[in-house]
């Protein structure tokens, strides 16, 4: 029962916190994460959303309005971080849609979750790259993007998934 659980307030608070921690991590570890020419981009907010979709499928007791909150998180991301409205407000709900599609076929656990998260991060980064190329925010070649951005970003975010999967599951169970 989503309506009655603590998750109703806990989920948005966690989402917003993850969104801000993304920026804080990028700022504190900027020397290591944005060492030219490579860039590691932290996507903890995506991790929180994807974990939401995974645990929702896992328990199959209730449904959460994930896509709506994903759009809200995307809107804040666009306005506060990038200043270009209309990119992540669509990408984050697409990620939720994709994840729900995948968990319908694959029974989610830690390992299959890792694979799902791999695909999600690739989609987030690829769509973000295409959008920013379209409005001339960057002039990076596709191959450069794969090597310098997508590779390190995947490595960082999968490591974060491994580290944070069980803590986040504990938080979700506590909030339920």
């Amino acid at each position: 029962m989503y309506r009655l659980s603590k998750l109703r307030f806990g989920f948005p608070v966690g989402l917003f916190l993850m969104l801000l921690i993304d920026g804080a991590i990028s700022q504190v570890f900027s020397v290591h994460m944005f060492r030219a020419p490579t860039a590691m981009v932290s996507h903890l907010v995506v991790l929180w959303l994807v974990c939401g979709a995974i645990f929702e499928a896992d328990s199959s007791a209730f449904e959460m309005p994930l896509a709506r909150w994903a759009a809200v998180a995307g809107a804040i991301f666009d306005l506060y971080y990038t200043g270009i409205f209309g990119i992540y407000i669509f990408i984050f709900p697409v990620v939720i849609y994709l994840t729900r599609l995948m968990v319908a076929y694959i029974r989610p656990n830690f390992l299959s979750g890792l694979l799902i998260y791999f695909i999600d991060i690739t989609v987030v980064e690829a769509l973000g790259y295409v959008a920013s190329r379209a409005i001339h925010l960057n002039d990076m070649a596709g191959s450069t993007f794969l090597v310098n951005t997508l590779g390190p970003t995947l490595a960082f975010n999968l490591a974060m998934f491994v580290l944070l999967y069980f803590p986040i599951r504990w938080v979700y169970n506590w909030l339920r």
Binding site: S26, A39, Y81, G83, G128, S132, T153
Partner: peptide, 15 residues
């Protein structure tokens, strides 16, 4: 003082 940095690989921005 810098509050945060845009978590993006092409937008090098700080707030």
């Amino acid at each position: 003082s810098v509050i945060t940095r845009t978590p993006s690989s092409w937008q090098n921005q700080v707030v």
